[in-house]
Amino acid sequence: MDVVNAILEKNVNSNKSISVHKDLELEIDEGTLLASDYNVFDKENLRSSQDTYLKNLTRDNVQVLINKIWMLQTERVDEAIVGILPKPVFVLPRARSVPKPKPLTKWQQFAKEKGITSKKKNKSKVTWDEELEKWIPKYGYKKAKADEQKEWLVEVNDPTKFTNGEDPFTASKTAKREKQAKNELQRLRNLAKAKNVKLPRVGIPSTEHFRDARQLAAATTIARASTASVGKFQSRLPKEKDAKDIASHVPGIKKKRKEAPLSVVQEKQRNKKLAESILRSKSTILHVDAPVPSTKSAKSSNSGGKKKSSKKEGKGAKKPKGGKGKRDLRSKVGGRKRR
């Protein structure tokens, strides 16, 4: 009888139906093969026989999920039945943020604006060369070699191509290098534009730099004076003049001398103005009581028939200025020595 019972029990177990009863419906996401069961556990069962309880609970939940998945639309791929899963609903974070669209280059932007599209869709990398009678690539590997073979001899005195006396090979080389450099410059400019880096402008300064013609004139004047010789040897354009009202900032510009006062009153007025302007100026005088370095007055040079003046300079004496100070013609006697 026991055997029969056992068999019956087994039969009953194996014929468990595929339907599962749940108080709360499971939250199922077929796209990620995920099922969440928010039902309350049977606490006693969980404590007493944890493993079997968990196994049964999971089995039920898996059964519910499998029921859903098997009900999905199916397809036959290589003698296997595959279910077409819907898109996942469960939101998961990405590993990296969404890529931004690549910024267009200057040419691409222009082409887009003007509606220019490349006509060559499937352009091949190689072209048939009549001279060599073989396929040579347009660029890259084996291109340089083919060129070398093609241009093994170049006529030197070809006035259409080269200026006289120029080495044609060097000329082509420099031309190529210039092309490369131009391309590189454009590439870098596009990169800078993409990264939003401000580049110094090349060529004629724009209105960004100089709002005003006067500013431009001032800039040229300052630039001319910025040589070691204070712009003495800089060439000028015909009729070019220094900018006005910056003479005080730029050394080497000829300042207009003030005319001598016509009358005593005028002179007085002028001096008063000067004094006032000094007093009004905001610059404070530091260390009013500071000890002033003592300066020895230069001794008189005419002593004991010495011809050359022997000036002994004190600590606070002026530095000699080459040619700027006035020469004392009397102190230095040129010509033959007289006894």
Binding site: L33, A35, S36, Y38, N39, V40, L54, V62
Partner: peptide
């Protein structure tokens, strides 16, 4: 690819 089952109300 595994099937993932989550049991327990705390998950919600």
């Amino acid at each position: 690819k595994p099937i993932l089952i989550f049991n327990g109300e705390v998950f919600e």
